[in-house]
């Protein structure tokens, strides 16, 4: 195969990887602050994907316009989930929280299955088949828009953590739970806010992803797993690591899909995971624990 084919696919992989990165960022934010492993991450993304798909088929609303509303819906969902269900579990063992979210995951994906049926749905925008020519490169318009939106959203999130009071409080909470309580921060509310933010990330990512992939109710688990692979690859608790991991996994999947067969591509994502666990267990950008 000529080199430019590889190059085109690689660019596509990086662009998709940026959206993956935003999805994984949500998981990383939740884990970093609330210390809960969100096993319903992919399923929450599926909710956002259905919002986008249904809004498009019913009202012809472009997913790019839906980015913020969809993220807001997921924010409310995440906030309520943490406040109502997870906060009471905060002192329970790690695996109990994990199984709780597993239950949430099962309910979400199968409720979607009951409502929407098993068929794949997709968004056919006017630019679905359009592309940009950049020298020898041909870049899919959908992927470019999705990636650009993901980057903007990510930048906004970083700015929120750095420059706002609530963002600073959340970071304080992540560093030192007891300390945050002592200085009078309402930790449970901050947890709910954080879970909401993580959900908003995955909501935005899911909305963008509808430009690139088909939507079915049962894609949740594989995206949950993909998010974990990315986060572990990039380094737990490292926000830039989540982005880097996303790009790396997106690239790996794209090239593996081209070189072998597309159905084998996630095997390569798992292979990357195993390699990382073997040679750099703390992840690419993670800090080695003492």
């Amino acid at each position: 195969m000529p080199l430019d084919v590889y190059l085109n696919v690689a660019v596509g992989g990086v662009l998709t990887g940026l959206v993956y990165g935003l999805m994984a960022l949500g998981l990383s934010v939740i884990f970093g602050v609330v210390r809960v492993v969100n096993f319903a991450h992919g399923e929450m993304m599926t909710i956002a994907m259905f919002i986008a798909v249904v809004a498009f088929s019913a009202f012809h609303i472009d997913p790019l316009i839906l980015l913020v509303p969809s993220a807001a819906v997921l924010f409310v969902f995440g906030y309520s989930l943490q406040a109502a269900l997870i906060n009471p579990f905060i002192t329970r063992p790690e695996h109990a929280q994990f199984l709780l979210l597993l239950a949430v995951a099962i309910i979400i994906s199968n409720a979607l299955l009951i409502v929407f049926g098993p068929d794949a749905r997709s968004v056919q925008t006017a630019y679905a088949l359009a592309s940009f020519q950049l020298g020898p490169l041909i870049i899919d318009a959908s992927k470019l828009y999705a990636a650009a939106a993901a980057v903007v959203f990510t930048a906004a999130l970083f700015a929120f953590f750095r420059f706002t009071l609530v963002g600073t409080a959340i970071r304080a909470c992540a560093d030192n739970y007891t300390g945050a309580q002592v200085v009078g921060l309402d930790v449970k509310r901050l947890y709910a806010l954080t879970f909401g933010l993580g959900a908003a990330c995955v909501g935005a990512a899911g909305t963008m992803l509808t430009l690139v992939v088909d939507t079915t109710p049962l894609v949740g688990p594989s995206y949950t797993l993909l998010a974990f692979v990315i986060v572990i690859t990039g380094g737990l608790g490292s926000l830039p690591g989540a982005l880097l991991g996303g790009v790396l996994i997106g690239l790996t999947e794209a090239l593996a899909g081209l070189t072998f067969t597309p159905s084998l591509k996630s095997m390569f994502a798992f292979a990357v995971l195993v390699l990382v666990l073997l040679f750099r267990p703390q992840g690419l950008l993670g800090r080695r624990s003492a």
Partner: peptide, 29 residues
């Protein structure tokens, strides 16, 4: 893989899922 390299708790759980998925895709092809 897990115990030698300190993959514990829920990360161990995720590794086990990853292996099962790996097998599923492998057998599918």
């Amino acid at each position: 893989l897990a115990f030698r390299f300190g993959v514990a708790g829920v990360y161990f759980a995720i590794l086990t899922i990853a292996f099962a998925e790996f097998a599923r895709i492998g057998f599918d092809n």
